[in-house]
Amino acid sequence: MALVTIDLQEGFANDTVVIRLNAQEVFRRENVTTRLQIGLADRIEIQTRERSSEVEIELPIKKLVVTKEIACEKDIFLGVTFHAGGKLTLREQLCEFWYA
């Protein structure tokens, strides 16, 4: 079993965010806003038994979706950023993201 940690990082401003893991909704929150002094809006931790999973992050009001196939053999950390140009990006790493 692996832990998938998803950090909603820069660029969120009163956004509704929906997260699906393998097409199943695991998170939905309104008014997600980045706390600018640390560059983090919210953190979601999901346990999964699958060896690989598809993560989908959706901002339904902005009509934006980003998906990523991830290997879940180890704990994995994903950072989601909404860029000013209207692009949603997802960064993956094997250690937790740091903030200050």
Binding site: E96, W98, A100
Partner: peptide, 13 residues
């Protein structure tokens, strides 16, 4: 409170 991933914060907002 949020753990080891936060090295510091200007908490006063």
């Amino acid at each position: 409170d949020s753990g080891t991933s936060l090295g510091g914060i200007m908490f006063d907002d």
